[in-house]
Design a protein around this nucleic acid. Sequence first.
DNA 1: ACTAATATTGTAAGCGCTTACATAAATAAT
DNA 2: ATTATTTATGTAAGCGCTTACAATATTAGT
Lengths: 334, 334
Amino acid sequence: MATIYEVSELAGVSLATVSRVVNKNARVSDKTKAKVISAMETLGYRPNSIAQSLASNRSNSVGLLVSELHGPFFGAMMSGIESEFRGAGKHTIVAAGHSDEQTEKDSIEFLINRNCDALILHAEAVSDEYLIQLSKQKIPLTLINRLVKGLEDRCVCLDNEQGGYLATQSLIEKGHTQFAYIAGPLWKNDAQDRLNGHKRALRESGLEQNPALIYEGNFQQDGGRLGIETLHNTGHAFTAIVCGNDEMASGALTMSRELNIAVPQQISVIGFDNIIYADYLYPKLTTIDYPVQLMGQMAAKLVLNETYKIKQNELRLHFIPKLVTRDSCDKNLM
Amino acid sequence: MATIYEVSELAGVSLATVSRVVNKNARVSDKTKAKVISAMETLGYRPNSIAQSLASNRSNSVGLLVSELHGPFFGAMMSGIESEFRGAGKHTIVAAGHSDEQTEKDSIEFLINRNCDALILHAEAVSDEYLIQLSKQKIPLTLINRLVKGLEDRCVCLDNEQGGYLATQSLIEKGHTQFAYIAGPLWKNDAQDRLNGHKRALRESGLEQNPALIYEGNFQQDGGRLGIETLHNTGHAFTAIVCGNDEMASGALTMSRELNIAVPQQISVIGFDNIIYADYLYPKLTTIDYPVQLMGQMAAKLVLNETYKIKQNELRLHFIPKLVTRDSCDKNLM
DNA sequence: ACTAATATTGTAAGCGCTTACATAAATAAT
DNA sequence: ATTATTTATGTAAGCGCTTACAATATTAGT
């Protein structure tokens, strides 16, 4: 692989000049520029990005921490981020945190050691203090789906509380009064916020919240299955079930079928996230839209704008949850 | 951030010695080692991996090309790969190829320029010649889900033809004789292979293949929907439908329901891949297992073994498709 | 104790590039 | 034409690390 030195020799100019035409960051006369470009072409020259990074203290890569690499939610998020960065010639280095504090910290350190120019984090398990501490180091941070006090301008998020409220409210409007709730792990902010929104909706409508009808699941399909089973076995009546996310909702749908509970005729089920296959389920899942791909893009744009000084328009930090009506909630109970 | 130089000063040794204890690749007396380690700790020293890469001509990162970052198939694949590399302290740099020849080439070049030590490619659109050419350069290649002649020992793959055969055969055994097929894009090797397996199964059982009952879809849900609709409209009778992958199968399931075709009572549907949510669908999808996460892991192990000389046991290149029986195929038609 | 062999450490030359600064060439101002 | 500006190019010092090779210290052999 040809080096910048060989190019400079062939073109009959200095290293610095070649570097200038490569980086387009200083004036070079058209004549020399042409010579250099031609030399680069005949040698098939490609700058060594490691060397560039070392010399410029810029790695042109950004670290991305997600909880898991699989799953529809993170898939969409990564997709949004990677495409945005690719377009700008930046690299994405991913690491999984597995919702575990130590693993998240390890991953972050791993990314920092790799000299990432910026970090985009979907961090669930580390504390706010840790993140605030981290933000004081020189590496710029962007958080997704987490609002940390003091770091508000670095957080791309959706109002989960409002989403939870919206989901429940939409069912109240249809006449439901007896609710069950399958929550995500309540130590996770988003799971807690969604539940809080649910409770607020009930409160505002003067409905009673039965603590026995709250099940804490794991945000995965089997959590939904177990949830329905458990709630059903309590013997308490309910006509609507609000799920902390779509994956649990899909489990709820499956288990309802196994228990011969008709959805939406006997109970209505609503999810959260609007993951790609919400539409494949039977019945098609009514849910709250979480525009995670767009939010990933936005986080990437934020980084491009601030770290790489590539001006972006239409930056946005806050996203609004929206109801997506499909077939899993009955039309009118009254 | 402290440099190796500062560590060497504090420890009262040379740069080289510090480097030796960091890399554990040369003997250092216990006494000096202790001094160095203590100095590293008090300074909070972390080696700059960019500098390490430049000096050692090793980036400790491997490039991963996938078609998309989202979707259950690639999610599982990335998951397998990343976890394997993380455990070995290697970085994964991902790029999406979007099943487009030019994009795939761009992505590969992008990864090479980043000085990846090895490449793991799920390349669909580039030609065999291109890959063979690439394999002659110094960067080691591993291919997933593609068997290229001459590169057999670099290919981690599943016998798609056999899988297609197996799917169809399982239905023939149940007594089906009239088949429709919803294929993936036939320019893709795996889609073509699966279809070939299907045809072979028919041939071996002396069943006739009706070309009108082959629909070429896009490997996505709407492909399955359109497929069913189109096939249904041909007016030709069929009692079983074999799908090129699970996503299309899920679309087929949905559309069948909309057309009031009962699955599996009126037609049996079988998929391919056994993606995570095959089990969430209604009816639960019978399919062919594609152990893509394991295969990703295996590709990673191959790289660890050969590029990084970290010995691995249980290396395996070939994987066997297996039938996963659920509810979308009828038990016995006869 | 003295040499040979071996184990440990140090020296210094890069890896391929960027960039402050110095120099030279071209242009403008007088 | 002469000096002041501006523009284009070159020089060389790193960026933080690895690694031949050289030098020194230690141990073994006799």
